[in-house]
């Protein structure tokens, strides 16, 4: 029969239309603006309208989500900023569009380069959010941010001040990664300490052997 296909298709549309209202009733007003409602609307069982009412409700971003890079700093005891970055330059070398500019700081007395950046510039309007810098940073310093609400009325270039964010923020947005990295750091430190201890013990033994 001509038109059967059309009717079948319209049936699908009608079902989808009805689904929204049925789901609304089933959730009794909790379908919107609740975390469970949002999770339901993004799950395999989602039916009907599944609009996220941004900005009132926001989709939770997964841990691995990456936007623009930022620099992690540890907080010292009196709140001072201990930048993890050593200005080694690996991130700027690995960056595919070359959007990271780093200047190594100089020791004010000796004028020799030290392990700290005096300038760190990321041209966000070149950055391709690929995350390679964060992947290859050996000091867990440069990381990818979750904050995507950074639209502005001008071009975006991030300098050192804009980039620095505390380690607590990083722990909060990427708990799994930061725990793993902290454990790895601790392990490396312990290994280093053990190595040092072993070396010292060896030296002591040798010294003891000599005196014998």
């Amino acid at each position: 029969m001509y038109g059967k296909g059309l009717l079948k298709g319209l049936g699908v549309t009608l079902k989808r239309f009805a689904d929204t209202y049925l789901d609304d009733i089933k959730w009794m007003g909790k379908r919107y603006y609740t975390a469970e409602g949002l999770a339901h609307r993004s799950s395999k069982d989602a039916k009907g309208i599944f609009t996220v009412q941004y900005p009132e409700e926001k989709l939770p971003v997964p841990e691995e989500f990456r936007y623009v890079p930022f620099l992690v700093y540890d907080e010292g005891e009196d709140g001072e900023i201990l930048n993890r970055c050593t200005a080694c330059g690996i991130c700027s070398k690995v960056c595919p569009p070359q959007c990271i500019w780093i200047e190594r700081a100089l020791d004010p007395k000796t004028q020799r380069p030290i392990q700290e950046p005096s300038q760190f510039i990321i041209d966000v309007d070149i950055c391709m959010n690929c995350g390679l810098c964060a992947e290859f940073c050996p000091f867990d310093s440069i990381k990818m941010d979750h904050d995507y609400e950074i639209a502005s009325y001008g071009r975006t270039v991030h300098h050192l001040d804009d980039l620095l964010k505390p380690a607590s923020y990083y722990d909060e947005i990427r708990p799994v990664n930061s725990t793993r990295e902290a454990a790895a750091r601790k392990e490396a430190e312990e290994a280093k300490a053990a190595k040092k201890a072993a070396r010292e013990a060896k030296a002591a033994a040798r010294a003891a052997a000599k005196t014998d």
Binding site: G89, K93, E103
Partner: peptide, 11 residues
């Protein structure tokens, strides 16, 4: 990598 990026940031 380009040389102007590190260690002297010639932005």
């Amino acid at each position: 990598p380009f040389k102007s990026r590190w260690p002297k940031a010639e932005y």
